[in-house]
Design a protein around this nucleic acid. Structure first.
Length: 413
RNA sequence: GGGUGGUUACCCAAGCGGCCAAAGGGGGCAGACUGUAAAUCUGCUGGCACUGCCUUCGCAGGUUCGAAUCCUGCACCACCCA
């Protein structure tokens, strides 16, 4: 917290770093003025980023603004994280065409703790300010709420694309949701933000703060928006509910595999937004003469290394290569099978074995997998397609289900 | 307060007395193919002691030989009018 501020580089240099991957800075000239003044006076910018603890998985989509925040930190500015434990109770309607399920206070609190732990992988929390917006909102009286609401109109609020769309389609718009942008804006007043980061769809919310700050006699913040990261499907935004995300807490293998499964098109935004690889190098990697697969491997390693270190990233890449060559992984998990599962001759039916190994949730499922040719055993990979086959279970038997599930059996009594 | 529409499997969504374990799509799983766990194609996608049996269509009752489908009540969601 009290670390000596590192000497600041020039405004031009900082701008060069900060503009990478940026979607928009509104208004840009104000930002550059703030930056120059900050450096001239040696007063760090207060850079705000808010997260609502609505779920527990921080994914790469969230890391886009978080990484930007980290860049600000590394340039000597102050990161101010807002944990939106009160805004989460409302639910941010941004970019959604339906109301968010609202959460209970208790859930939100648990999520918030978990969030910070994950965010700490990107942000230097020791040098950051962390606030919960419940710190102020929980003390508010009804009159305070009224005062806040007076600062805008239905017309202004409903100008927002997502609200307008829902109104057009006769879908519900809750009054509480209209409060969301105001609450987020008020957070900026409370912490006297100079800059606020957010995704492009956040622009409306980020600008509401400017009005509120000016009403309170503060210099308005600048909105810096980051592009929305597409998910592993290559088309829709990365999101938990869409199941197309790469979580920062996931294993190195899982992260690497998911990066490799990306279509080719989103590689450039991934490089730009999620790595520090110089843009000239990115151009080379994505240019002619480089196999996109190899470029993707570089990308995967660069991303995984941030969360698991270089060693784990290399290992994940190697394991992936083995798998795509059809080889068994180096570490084959050993699964214990108790003898009483077997019949008098030491055998068990194929579907039951698969369930006992935990590879399928039901024997019906296991049957289907077997019938589809997804089950083979032994070093010779004997494929079994008859669900009635009795498997001779011996110690050390290799069992594979699909491409990714493999186990070496250990017989225990 | 009044009216209308809705609640179906992981999600969306069809079905409106038997041919329904329930169309179609998404997602997922498996197979083929491939630079890839991409794309494409194919199959599967409630459970089990699996040519059969059992449990599912908001909840609880009822009508019927037979209900996801009809009736009654309840709960929840939404829209419209006030």
């Amino acid at each position: 917290m009290n670390e000596a501020p590192r000497p600041m580089s020039s405004a031009a240099d900082q701008w060069e770093t900060l503009r990478r991957g940026i979607d928009a800075v509104v208004p840009e000239d104000e930002f550059r003025k703030k930056l120059e003044r900050s450096i001239a006076r040696g007063v760090p910018l207060r850079v705000k980023y808010g997260i609502d603890p609505t779920g527990i998985d921080v994914h790469l989509g969230h890391t886009v603004p978080l990484r930007k925040l980290r860049q600000f930190q590394d340039l000597g500015h102050t990161a101010v994280l807002i944990i939106g434990n009160y805004t989460a109770l409302v639910g941010d309607p941004s970019g959604r065409d339906e109301t968010r399920a609202s959460l209970t206070e208790a859930q939100v609190e648990i999520n918030a703790k978990d969030y910070l732990k994950q965010v700490g992988r990107i942000i230097d929390l020791d040098r950051a300010e962390v606030h919960h917006n419940g710190d102020w909102f929980s003390k508010w009286s009804f009159l305070d709420v009224l005062r806040l609401m007076r600062s805008t109109t239905i017309g202004q609020i409903s100008a927002r694309e997502d609200f307008a769309k829902r109104l057009r389609e006769a879908k519900p718009v809750h009054l509480s949701e209209c409060l969301y942008p105001l609450m987020q804006g008020w957070d900026s007043v409370e912490i006297k933000a100079d800059v606020e980061l957010g995704g492009t769809e956040q622009l409306f919310n980020l600008l509401v703060a400017r009005d509120l700050q000016q009403e309170q006699g503060q210099e308005p913040q600048v909105a810096m928006t980051m592009p929305i990261l597409v998910g592993t499907d290559g088309t829709r935004r990365m999101g938990k509910s869409l199941g197309n995300y790469i979580g920062v807490a996931e294993s190195a293998e899982a992260q690497f595999g998911k990066v490799m499964s990306l279509p080719d098109e989103p590689m450039r935004p991934y490089f730009t937004l999620l790595t520090d690889i110089p843009l000239a190098e990115v151009d080379r990697l994505l240019g002619p003469g480089v196999n996109p697969r190899d470029a993707k491997e570089v990308l995967g390693k660069a991303i995984v290394a941030q969360y698991h270190g270089d060693g784990a990233a290399e290992a994940a890449a190697a394991a992936f290569r083995r798998r795509s060559e059809g080889l068994d992984p180096e570490d084959i998990p050993v699964v214990e099978i108790t003898r009483d599962l077997l019949d008098g001759e030491g055998r068990v039916s194929a579907p039951r074995l698969i369930v006992a190994l935990g590879f399928e949730s039901s024997t019906s499922n296991a049957r289907r997998t077997i019938e589809g040719g997804g089950f083979n055993i032994g070093t010779d990979r004997r494929v079994i397609t008859d669900t009635k086959t009795m498997i001779d279970v011996t110690d050390g038997l290799l069992v594979r289900v699909g491409k990714r599930k493999i186990a070496r059996i250990k017989l225990v009594s």
